[in-house]
Deep mutational scan, measured.
Amino acid sequence: TGEEYIAVGDFTAQQVGDLTFKKGEILLVIEKKPDGWWIAKDAKGNEGLVPRTYLEPYS
């Protein structure tokens, strides 16, 4: 389980392990790392690192 967040901007993977997403996408945050990069999963089940500055809590 995780917390749902909504993307407030588009993000394109910079390196292997990053997750590309579009503004408005709902992501499930699995782990919040202290460096500001969180592990998240998208609706298709893809998992990767995302920058927390692009996310806001979804309710």
Rank of each mutant, 00 (worst) to 15 (best):
T1F: 11
E3F: 08
T1C: 10
T53E: 15
G9W: 15
T53N: 11
F21H: 01
Q15D: 12
N46T: 09
E31L: 11
E47W: 09
Y58D: 05
G24N: 07
G9R: 13
S59Q: 14
I39H: 11
Y5D: 00
Q14I: 14
Q15L: 11
P57Q: 08
Q14D: 09
G9E: 15
N46L: 10
R52D: 11
G17E: 05
Q15M: 12
Q15T: 13
K44R: 14
L19D: 00
E56V: 11
Q14V: 13
V8D: 02
V16Q: 11
P34H: 13
I39F: 13
V50H: 00
T12P: 06
P51L: 13
I6L: 08
T12R: 08
V29W: 00
K41S: 08
D18F: 15
S59R: 12
D35L: 05
I6M: 10
V29Q: 01
K33N: 12
I30H: 04
S59V: 13
Y5L: 02
L27M: 06
A43Q: 13
P34D: 14
A7N: 00
Y5R: 01
D10N: 09
L19R: 01
G45T: 02
E25Q: 12
L28S: 07
A13M: 06
I26W: 06
L27T: 01
K32T: 05
Y58C: 09
A40M: 11
D35T: 08
S59D: 14
Y58V: 11
A7Y: 02
G45A: 05
G36D: 09
S59G: 14
D35I: 03
I26N: 02
L55E: 01
P34E: 15
T20S: 15
T53L: 12
E56Q: 09
I6R: 09
L27D: 00
K22C: 07
G48R: 01
G2F: 14
K44Q: 14
L27R: 00
I30T: 08
W38D: 02
E4Y: 15
E31P: 01
Y54D: 04
L27P: 00
G45Y: 04
V16T: 14
K32V: 06
Y58L: 13
G9Q: 14
E47K: 09
D10T: 06
V50W: 00
P51V: 04
I30L: 14
V8A: 07
K33Y: 09
Y5W: 13
P51N: 15
L55Y: 00
G48K: 01
D10C: 05
K32R: 08
P34I: 11
W37Y: 10
K23A: 09
K32M: 08
W38G: 01
E56K: 14
Q15Y: 10
G2S: 12
K41D: 02
E4G: 06
G2Y: 14
A40I: 03
T53W: 15
Y58I: 11
V16A: 12
V29K: 00
Y58N: 08
E4N: 15
P51R: 07
T20Q: 08
I26C: 05
P57F: 09
G48Q: 01
T53R: 13
G45D: 06
K41C: 08
G2H: 12
A43W: 12
Y58Q: 07
L49F: 13
D35A: 04
G9D: 14
N46P: 01
Y5P: 00
T1V: 11
P57Y: 08
F21A: 03
D42S: 07
T1R: 05
A40W: 01
E4T: 14
I39V: 13
K33G: 12
L49R: 14
S59H: 15
F21T: 02
G17A: 06
T20M: 04
D42P: 02
I6S: 03
V8W: 04
L27S: 00
P34L: 12
D35W: 04
E47P: 05
L27V: 07
G45Q: 06
D42R: 02
I30F: 11
I39M: 14
V29H: 00
T12C: 08
W37M: 11
G17I: 04
L28G: 03
A43N: 10
G2W: 10
N46E: 12
G9L: 15
W37E: 05
I26P: 03
A7R: 00
Q15S: 13
N46H: 09
A7D: 00
Y5V: 02
P57C: 06
Y58P: 05
L55N: 00
G45P: 00
L55Q: 00
K23C: 09
K32G: 02
W38C: 03
Y54N: 06
A7W: 01
E3D: 08
A43C: 08
Q14Y: 08
G17R: 06
D10F: 04
L49G: 07
K33W: 09
G24Y: 05
F21L: 05
K23L: 08
E56L: 11
W38F: 06
E31N: 10
I26F: 05
F21M: 05
Q15H: 13
K41G: 03
N46G: 08
I39Y: 12
V8K: 09
P57M: 07
G9V: 12
W37A: 06
L27G: 00
A7G: 05
G17C: 06
